[in-house]
Every structure is written in structure tokens, then in C-alpha cells.
């Protein structure tokens, strides 16, 4: 059987039943492809065994880039490239450069982090997502299980385990 084509899809109505269901399904040795929810369910990432996201590190690095670029730009422009006497003050001193440095730090951190998020999540305007169940953005939580990955278990067994774990509905979904 080809991977990423044939799925069993469990529909859950309630987020607490879903959390419990995820634990039950995983403890029975089934590997879950992904769970799609209409809103963020707290604790779901831990229940699925996902590691923490490294996006905060990306944000920090982008912010640091902003700080360094802003300071270099200001010291180079007013201190080296064209020093100007403005009100008898120093050509280049740190305190008046702080506001612009702060703003550019925030700007680069925010834009860089969001761009990283879109890239790692493979989100783009012209992409149509592969939907396991159209109700997953409305009010249902949808658990998808790839049959090829779980070749050790039969389809009927997986469907039985899903029902026992609290799924209100269990369907098959095949992609071309």
C-alpha cells in the first residue's frame, strides 16, 4: 500500500474526549498522521508527543539581526559616512539611536518569525489544503491515521480502536 494516500479518519465532537482518545489510540500502538481542530486545543501537542517549536529561537535571532543592523546603519551613516553637527551634539552617540534600534529589532523579529512560520508550515496563498473532513474548521476535531504507516494493523482494527477511543464517527478517506 502506498504511503500518504489511504487514511482512516476519526471525528471527535469534544476536545476533552479527543485528548483522551489521542492517548488511547497512541497507547494501542497506532501512529497518528495528524489531528485537525477548529481551534487550538491545549495539551494536544503534548498528547501527540510533539516536541516544542523552535520558532522563539528564530524570533530571537531575527531580533538580534535587527538590533545589529540598526546600530551599524546609524553609526555608519552619522558617525562615519557624513558626520553632521546638529545642535552641537556628538556626531554619533548611543542614547539617541536607541528608539530606532528598538523599532527595527521588533520589526525584524516579528516579520522574520511570521515568515518562518509560513515557510515551515508550508502555507501559501495558492495552495489548496488536503482536507480529511470539511467540518474540521467548523466544530469537529478530525484525527487522520495513515494506513500504510500502520501496516501492522488491519483497517478494521484501527477503525474499532478509534470508535472505542471516543470517535463519534469513523470514515475512510482516499486521495488520488
Amino acid at each position: 500500500m502506498e504511503a500518504d494516500k489511504h487514511f482512516v479518519v476519526g471525528i471527535f465532537d469534544d476536545e476533552d474526549v479527543l485528548l483522551d482518545g489521542v492517548k488511547k489510540v497512541r497507547s494501542s500502538g497506532i501512529r497518528i498522521h495528524e489531528v485537525y481542530t477548529p481551534f487550538p486545543v491545549h495539551g494536544l501537542d503534548e498528547a501527540l508527543g510533539y516536541s516544542r517549536t523552535r520558532l522563539p529561537i528564530a524570533a530571537f535571532l531575527f531580533g538580534l539581526t535587527g538590533t545589529i543592523l540598526a546600530l551599524l546603519m546609524q553609526f555608519w551613516m552619522l558617525g562615519y559616512d557624513w558626520p553632521m553637527i546638529i545642535g552641537g551634539k556628538n556626531f554619533a552617540s548611543l542614547p539617541p539611536f536607541i528608539p530606532v534600534t528598538f523599532e527595527l529589532t521588533v520589526l525584524l523579529a516579528a516579520l522574520g518569525m511570521v515568515a518562518t512560520f509560513l515557510i515551515v508550515s508550508d502555507m501559501k496563498p495558492y495552495k489548496w489544503p488536503r482536507q480529511f473532513d470539511i467540518r474540521s474548521t467548523d466544530d469537529k476535531h478530525v484525527m487522520a491515521i495513515d494506513l500504510a504507516v500502520n501496516a501492522g494493523k488491519s483497517k478494521d482494527e484501527i477503525m474499532r480502536i478509534l470508535r472505542e477511543s471516543g470517535a463519534s464517527e469513523v470514515n475512510e478517506k482516499n486521495f488520488e
Binding site: Y36, V41, S121, S136
Partner: peptide, 22 residues
């Protein structure tokens, strides 16, 4: 407009992290 949003648990995890840092 939704950038092909699907709402997977991993995406939500990242999304929440982005929202908190923003």
C-alpha cells in the same frame, strides 16, 4: 486569504507560539 490553512495540531502549536511572541 487563509494561505491554505488546515488547522493541524502542529500548525496550531506553532501558531500559538507566534501569537504569544507577537
Amino acid at each position: 486569504l487563509s494561505f491554505g490553512w488546515q488547522g493541524g495540531a502542529k500548525t496550531w502549536q506553532r501558531y500559538e507560539s507566534v501569537a504569544l511572541i507577537l
